[in-house]
């Protein structure tokens, strides 16, 4: 979506897009990966599903709520958001060292092991942090 994408040069976005495609290809249980701005814009996504924009907005709302709950409980800033369902998992991780904040939301089918999904997503976030540095 335009407002956030304008912050990044087209070649950086193309690079992030490539990284997401490689990430999804290397992890067959992942059905969608979306880079999201803190205020709910889709920055990059793979595959290009219509729901990516809504997932972007929803994940930013949930992340803000999880941080509000953590603050209320006297905890520090939340790191990961994990939604486990009967047939799949969604994780939302912050992409480090980028301001304003960006996150990676990942949707995986039920056969994915949570620990492996978190590890793979964290690795992807680190790679995205490198390619999206302005």
């Amino acid at each position: 979506m335009q407002p956030t994408n304008q912050r990044f040069a087209p070649q950086l976005l193309a690079s992030a897009q490539r990284q997401l495609a490689e990430f999804v290809a290397a992890n067959p249980d992942i059905t969608l990966a979306v880079v999201t701005s803190g205020d709910g814009f889709e920055v990059a996504a793979h595959p290009h599903l219509p729901m990516a924009q809504r997932i972007a907005a929803m994940s930013s709302s949930l992340q803000a709520l999880s941080e509000a709950i953590a603050r209320e409980a006297g905890l520090s800033r939340s790191r990961n958001l994990i939604i486990e369902t009967d047939n799949g998992t969604i994780v939302v991780l912050g992409i480090p060292n980028i301001t304003p904040r960006l996150s990676l939301a990942v949707v995986a089918s039920g056969s994915e092991i949570l620990g492996r999904l978190l590890w793979a997503t964290r690795t992807c976030c680190a790679a995205l942090a490198g390619s999206l540095q302005v």
């Binding site: 709910g40 509000a68 304003p100």
Partner: peptide
């Protein structure tokens, strides 16, 4: 309880932050 984050869409509004939840 607030869920304000940085507003990156300055074309729509010039305010610094926006509520997302």
């Amino acid at each position: 309880v607030s869920t304000e984050v940085d507003n990156t869409d300055r074309a729509s509004h010039t305010k610094d932050s926006t509520t997302v939840a």
